[in-house]
Design a protein around this nucleic acid. Structure first.
Lengths: 128, 128, 128, 128
DNA sequence: GTGGTCTAGACCACG
DNA sequence: GTGGTCTAGACCACT
């Protein structure tokens, strides 16, 4: 369920965070659902509990999950949607140089939209 | 000309590389044009010469610039032909998690395309 | 009667201890009154009997309650005389970092007193 | 400058966070000031760099400091003062049971205000 | 030099 | 069993 790429330059805890958010978005994980314990998750992913804990801690700070002492971690009841515009600006700033490179290579705007469409479809299809 | 964001998580040398490519694309920099020396560039950007040198070294490896011992660095005569499809795949892979976060927050596909359109327009306007 | 906050970082047994003391102070519970059995209390609060037992054990050590083998737990006849000044010092030490954070945020001393006044009023009202 | 209590039940990283905030509040540390590097701080406090890093990471998430890759950590330019009322409610909830215990012991409201006043004065006096 | 990430293993408090 | 904290030491990327 949470397949990771040990060789990626993206930190493992970051990958795990993304995977969990993905699963929430796709509603494989719903509010109230329990997450595997830190240790169990660590065993399954073949990483140290510390790394999993780091992911969980960040998710908790982001109010994506709630951890209860001695019980485990649970998906938070609601997705906090406070700073939507901020988030978009943020993502824009990050995507900008990537698209710039495409334009630099002579790839047109239509082609870029095509790519985005494909991406969105791919992400949704994974749901099926 | 090459404004950097020292707070970004993107390495400074990487930002510089992108900026130089951007300027080539916009034809502010043309084949044969000289680039500021490592030291001068470093002074202007308030970074260490090491960082600039790293950017120049990578650009040379990518055949974007040519450095001549004792003279300086120059824009290469031709834009290198990198496989377009590969580049797109690469960018897709990098953009993916960013868009995933937007979707996770409930931002729709239309909104994303809107954002992309804005981005492209902004980049083109800068050209003018 | 003993509402708990399972998401609080304060241990559940500690919360239960405080709640019982609160009820004694407000004279909802008087010397000689019986407390629910460990198991009954555990069922009502939806916690494990272990947790309730821990609270009862500590309360007995503090001479706040008396447990009689085979019968149950009872409120002790007298409020134990703990050195008042010691208790105040203790509470001061615990409150200190909390108030420090408020001051750090630019919240003034008057505002803090206001808050304390509100708190005391709230607690007294509950008594009525 | 940042004296810690290894024997306290309060985590070391938490103590460090508080100390740094205290120093900012008292203006020993001002916006833009550099903090000792993770390693240097760790050496001075006789703890592992990991622990210091944890404190710094949390402070960064709280926007109290800014860390720059390869350079170090700096006090953020401004204190973010978004959720003042929330913070007060939060602190109230935490202080409540502590004051309740004082009332339980027969300590009056005036005495409590006296204590608070003392506390505030103590914290400010440390500035001198 | 700096911070960022990860591992392996330990101890503790809570349930 | 659970999560929380801490240590010691390693490797990496960036400046």
């Amino acid at each position: 369920m949470f397949q990771l790429d040990i060789y990626s330059s993206v930190p493992i805890y970051e990958q795990l965070i993304r995977k969990i958010k993905e699963n929430i978005m796709k509603e494989y994980l719903k509010p109230g659902d329990g997450l595997p314990s830190v240790r169990k998750m660590a065993r399954e992913l073949h990483v140290t509990p510390n790394t999993v804990q780091k992911a969980y801690r960040i998710l908790e700070q982001e109010k994506v999950i709630v951890t209860v002492r001695g019980k485990g971690a649970y998906i938070a009841s609601k997705k906090p949607e406070i700073p939507v515009e901020d988030k978009i600006s943020d993502v824009k700033r990050q995507i900008r140089p990537l698209l710039m490179e495409l334009l630099y290579m002579g790839i047109g705007v239509e082609k870029i939209h095509e790519m985005i469409t494909e991406l969105c479809e791919e992400m949704k299809e994974e749901e099926a």
